[in-house]
Amino acid sequence: GCCSHRSRRPINRGFACGNMSHLADETRFTVNELEALYELFKKLSSSIIDDGSIHKEELQLALLQTPQGENLFLDRVFDLFDEKKNGVIEFDEFVHALNVFHPYAPIDDKIDFAFRLYDLRQTGFIEREEVKQMVIAILMESDVKLPDDILEEIIEKTFADADADKDGKINKEEWKVFVLRHPSLLKNMTLPYLKDVTTVFPSYIFHTEVED
């Protein structure tokens, strides 16, 4: 196990071995895979401020290749990773969130996570205004102009499809029915990399000392 190496060479500096096996118990990852993820975590968490936590700018740098500027989606992803709401992502939070993105994670967990991403104001509903805000944000990001009436029509049709009780907002049940009919909406919720994180990233294996 990982603890037997502790006296010889320090591994997972900043994250205790016991915690590693605890994380392995509560997620789909093995201790080996967690060690590989820890290498990734160390890389991300030291890219700007080397303090053992991922700051929003660091996540932004990793996902958008720039630490600057506002990004609605990045903010939501960061908020969902930051379980403790202390403004940084710690390793256990990183692992908990990535666990949902595991190819074998339950689809209900993915559906729920996606719902929370889109529920910008965290009201328990995805509202029209929120969907509109996200579409507009993407149009701005990609410098695409779309006439207002076309935008309204897209929102209108989306809600006609998703908002079964026609109250102008999508609740969790409606969301579930909707995404199961449009499974491609969950594509972003699965990271194939996570299935075999230790072999997909041989450079991480180099630092890994645990054998299966």
């Binding site: 991300l44 990004n71 449009h182």
Partner: peptide, 25 residues
Amino acid sequence: PFLNAFEFISSMSEGFDLSNMFETK
């Protein structure tokens, strides 16, 4: 053709694409 707003958001938003995280050098 009907463009689903969520389809648009999930396929276009880089901030939601965590795979980028694994491509950090």
